[in-house]
Simulated scan of single mutants.
Amino acid sequence: MRVMNPIARFDLAFSLFCLQHRFNHQVALMSRAVSHTGDGHLYVVIALVAYLMDADAGKVFVLCGLSAFLIELPIYWALKNSFKRRRPPELSSQLISFITPSDRYSLPSGHTAAGFLMATIISQFYPQLTPIAFGWAGLIGLSRILLGVHFITDVVIGVALGIGCAELAMNLVGV
């Protein structure tokens, strides 16, 4: 476990940097709005728009998205319940959370995984939207840190999980 100590110290230091400033409440308001876009409802809207724009490509887009989430969700839950990493405020009384998370554990960030999963699929089907899609996914990940519910390594692992599951799903679908 010695390897984890420097990572845990970095996580704590980064969270303190992100949460202990005089504008943290204003930042949290913006972060809450960004984080909300990663709750899942927007993914359905994106899939619907893709289907309505071009039914044939939209069907493949939806199939890739559903397949990716079918791969990602069990892995996400297995990781959460294996690592059982406590959330930032539970590990340091100096840290606060601006929202109540939907589950108990911190690693990985599910919002980040889902955001990067969608960004990866969007970028495959609509390459011109790549900067917007990945920028949006990155903001979702950052918002989770700024809301005090995740450490940076939770977000990094969420990024890897989301991209990896999307790539696997697209390969399985044949895209």
Results as ranks from 00 to 15, higher is better:
residue 140 I to V: 15
residue 127 P to C: 08
residue 152 I to F: 01
residue 9 R to L: 13
residue 8 A to P: 01
residue 167 E to G: 03
residue 30 M to G: 14
residue 137 A to L: 07
residue 142 L to W: 06
residue 24 N to L: 00
residue 5 N to M: 12
residue 47 A to C: 15
residue 82 S to I: 15
residue 105 Y to G: 06
residue 146 L to D: 00
residue 99 I to Q: 01
residue 97 S to G: 13
residue 122 I to Q: 01
residue 22 R to V: 04
residue 79 L to K: 04
residue 139 L to E: 09
residue 153 T to V: 13
residue 66 L to I: 15
residue 146 L to F: 08
residue 12 L to Q: 12
residue 14 F to N: 07
residue 50 A to D: 03
residue 90 E to I: 08
residue 21 H to G: 09
residue 99 I to L: 05
residue 30 M to Q: 08
residue 66 L to R: 04
residue 142 L to V: 15
residue 170 M to W: 03
residue 15 S to Q: 11
residue 83 F to V: 15
residue 54 D to M: 09
residue 146 L to N: 05
residue 85 R to I: 13
residue 25 H to D: 15
residue 91 L to P: 01
residue 151 F to R: 03
residue 37 T to M: 10
residue 132 I to R: 09
residue 128 Q to A: 14
residue 136 W to I: 03
residue 58 G to K: 07
residue 109 S to I: 07
residue 98 F to T: 04
residue 19 L to A: 03
residue 60 V to N: 07
residue 57 A to G: 02
residue 76 Y to I: 12
residue 108 P to C: 14
residue 160 A to M: 14
residue 129 L to V: 09
residue 63 L to W: 03
residue 6 P to Y: 07
residue 72 E to Y: 02
residue 18 C to Y: 00
residue 135 G to D: 08
residue 155 V to E: 04
residue 28 A to F: 02
residue 167 E to D: 10
residue 92 S to P: 04
residue 22 R to P: 01
residue 164 G to S: 15
residue 31 S to I: 03
residue 87 R to F: 12
residue 126 Y to K: 06
residue 162 G to T: 07
residue 149 V to P: 00
residue 97 S to W: 00
residue 97 S to T: 09
residue 96 I to N: 07
residue 42 L to A: 11
residue 41 H to S: 12
residue 155 V to H: 05
residue 65 G to W: 02
residue 34 V to F: 05
residue 100 T to C: 07
residue 112 T to Y: 02
residue 162 G to W: 00
residue 175 V to D: 00
residue 139 L to S: 14
residue 17 F to I: 12
residue 169 A to H: 04
residue 78 A to I: 11
residue 121 I to F: 01
residue 81 N to D: 12
residue 83 F to Q: 05
residue 25 H to A: 13
residue 108 P to G: 11
residue 144 R to F: 07
residue 47 A to N: 06
residue 76 Y to A: 08
residue 86 R to Y: 13
residue 27 V to E: 04
residue 33 A to Q: 11
residue 89 P to W: 10
residue 29 L to I: 06
residue 92 S to W: 10
residue 23 F to S: 10
residue 82 S to G: 14
residue 54 D to I: 08
residue 6 P to G: 10
residue 173 V to R: 06
residue 46 I to L: 10
residue 99 I to H: 00
residue 152 I to M: 05
residue 154 D to V: 09
residue 115 G to T: 00
residue 160 A to G: 13
residue 88 P to C: 10
residue 172 L to N: 09
residue 93 S to H: 15
residue 122 I to C: 00
residue 73 L to E: 14
residue 126 Y to E: 04
residue 175 V to Q: 02
residue 56 D to Q: 15
residue 131 P to N: 08
residue 162 G to A: 04
residue 70 L to E: 06
residue 164 G to N: 07
residue 55 A to C: 10
residue 42 L to D: 07
residue 45 V to D: 05
residue 166 A to M: 06
residue 2 R to L: 13
residue 152 I to N: 02
residue 101 P to T: 13
residue 39 D to H: 10
residue 111 H to N: 08
